[in-house]
């Protein structure tokens, strides 16, 4: 192993959390000793994880600035759109960090209903997010027509289940076919059975992957800390 230290950190952090789940005594971890250290780690690691997630956002923002800044500077193809990204990014950053609008200055809450940041969320981010996802309604319909043409028993079952669920939730399906109760039963019984089989299978897979990472066997995806 060329650089073992990050792997030791990975293994140590994972083992502490597993140990903490089984033996952490109540308290804030100030009692000292091994039990105290384990409790302290259990209490703080998830918070630190959240903090690192924010640093990852900062890293992403800096990377976005660098990438699109370079495209604009070098006048690459479609650089105008990169300029749009940069302008909207910087504008929201200034509005958000300086807490413009709404309650007075920096003492205000950036998520207050009257703040400019909330207005940007309501008028720009939320409509764009909803519209981009709603576009999928069209593409899912055409893709499903191509993918699910009933060519085998399995695809016929899949298509049938999807149709029953869809028709069971719209007035025409309920009025003409009385699919509401069948749809409910399908969601509650066989769907639950399949979901449980999937969840149990996924859980076993995740645990196996976690153990491989802890043992340093999963190198392809950063198991060696890289």
């Amino acid at each position: 192993m060329k650089r073992p230290t990050p792997q030791i950190l990975l293994t140590g952090v994972a083992l502490i959390l597993v140990v903490a789940a089984f033996m952490a005594p109540p308290g804030d971890g100030s009692s000292g000793g091994f039990a105290g250290a384990v409790t302290y780690a259990d209490r703080h690691f998830s918070s630190w994880f959240g903090i690192l997630a924010v640093f990852a956002f900062l890293l992403g923002g800096a990377s976005l600035l660098r990438t699109h800044g370079r495209r604009v500077r070098e006048r690459k193809a479609d650089w105008h759109y990169s300029a749009v990204t940069l302008v909207s990014f910087l504008a929201v950053l200034i509005v958000g960090f300086l807490k413009l609008g709404g309650p007075p200055g920096l003492t205000g809450d950036p998520t207050d209903a009257s703040s400019w940041l909330t207005t940007i969320f309501d008028s720009v981010l939320s409509p764009l997010h909803a519209t981009l996802y709603s576009l999928l309604a069209f593409y899912v319909a055409s893709a499903s027509y191509r993918a699910f043409r009933a060519r085998s028993l399995e695809t016929s079952v899949l298509l049938g289940a999807a149709l029953i669920v869809l028709l069971g939730r719209i007035p025409v399906g309920v009025t003409l076919f009385r699919f509401d109760s069948l749809s409910l039963w399908l969601l509650k019984v066989p769907n639950t059975a399949g979901q449980r089989a999937l969840m149990i299978g996924v859980a076993l897979g995740v645990v196996a992957l976690a153990v491989r990472m802890v043992l340093g066997l999963e190198r392809g995806r950063g198991g060696d800390g890289s």
């Binding site: 924010v54 992403g60 923002g61 990169s82 929201v92 509005v95």
Partner: peptide, 17 residues
């Protein structure tokens, strides 16, 4: 592109504050 810029900055700001 507006979505990309606004979204990245919004979640950065929320995460910061």
């Amino acid at each position: 592109h507006v979505f990309v810029g606004v979204s990245a900055a919004y979640w950065m700001v929320i995460g910061f504050w």
